[in-house]
Design a protein around this nucleic acid. Structure first.
Length: 298
DNA sequence: CATGGTCAAGTGGCA
DNA sequence: TGCCACTTGACCATG
């Protein structure tokens, strides 16, 4: 069992050097400075990914979610067009080697704008483009073509008919290149009207895509399964030889005893680790305090 | 240099 | 209708 955290390291971010992997810019700046500046930021982001992974190794953390914002405005150019592409490429290659040597599990979680179930062709197009960028990054890192290095998404839409939406997911899944398809996973949602683990089994049965179980989301969308049942079902969708990933977080509203905050929002820290019911899983902790939240449990 | 308004993208729930 | 929440606040104009 490995514990991991997502995207950013607060300890390093507070350094004078401001280590971070999601330097970006607003639209106006992108229009003004263009791909040259995007390249500079991307190179800094990539170098800092290396710093974070080194810190992780030094602190016995070998599970980490890579930021989806490594390349600012990446959907507007090909990575190979970046002026510093060769430098970025070689840096990523060496990070990939480092990850392999140290048995680091790297995953990703593209944002809520990825909607493979969308009835809109342009939304699906943009989704495919974003997923491609994630896969290209993973290829440059020489990460495995399997859900060991998952690219995990939600369905992100229902439109009044889950089955029809999931059918579109299956259709669009077939349009994805191999380096995305082999890594793609789906996660249960945190709204009752959306996709429970049980709902997502429909996708698994049709296209064999593994399900990431999120403990916190399950509380809001159980599909009438107990936590144990839903976890076991999700774990059963993972291929042999790949340890399933689960997500764990706690409610900010409960932590801070503040009913103004939505129950779904994530707390800074966690009080417990989840019950894995004897299953071997890697736990991605989604807490605002990032690495600080898991240190007590290592 | 500190700070507050603002920021690409999709969706659903809620006040 | 507009804000919040979602895997992560960061950028940048202004004072």
């Amino acid at each position: 069992m490995n514990l991991g955290y997502a995207c950013a390291n607060l300890t390093l971010a507070k350094n004078k050097t401001k280590v971070c992997c999601n330097r970006s810019m607003v639209k106006k700046t992108f229009l003004r400075k263009g791909i040259d500046y995007a390249s500079e930021l991307a190179l800094l982001n990539v170098k800092d990914l290396s710093e974070i992974l080194k810190w992780n190794v030094a602190n016995n953390i070998n599970f980490f979610r890579v930021s989806s914002d490594m390349f600012p405005w990446a959907s507007h150019y090909k990575l190979s067009q970046l002026p510093q592409y060769n430098l970025i490429k070689s840096e990523l290659l060496s990070i990939g080697d480092y990850a392999k040597e140290n048995k680091l599990r790297l995953t990703s979680h593209p944002g809520p704008f990825n909607v493979l179930v969308s009835p809109s062709a342009s939304v699906v197009e943009n989704t495919i483009s974003d997923l491609n960028i994630h896969a290209e990054l993973f290829d440059l890192l020489s990460l495995s073509n399997s859900t060991y290095n998952k690219i995990n998404i939600h369905c992100n839409g229902v439109y009044g008919d889950k089955k029809a939406a999931m059918d579109r997911f299956c259709t669009n899944f077939k349009k994805l290149p191999e380096n995305v398809r082999t890594r793609l996973t789906v996660e249960n949602d945190d709204k009752a009207s959306m996709y429970s683990v049980l709902d997502l089994m429909y996708l698994y049965e049709k296209i064999g895509i593994p399900i990431v179980f999120d403990y916190h989301h399950h509380k809001f969308c159980s599909g009438d399964l107990s936590e144990k049942e839903a976890l076991k079902l999700a774990v059963s969708t993972w291929p042999k030889g790949v340890i399933p990933v689960v997500h764990y977080s706690e409610s900010k509203s409960v932590h801070e005893n503040n009913s103004e905050i939505k129950l779904q929002a994530h707390s800074d820290y966690i009080n417990n680790l989840p019950d894995t019911y004897g299953l071997d899983v890697d736990i991605m902790v989604e807490a605002k305090a990032k690495e600080l939240s898991i240190i007590p449990f290592l």
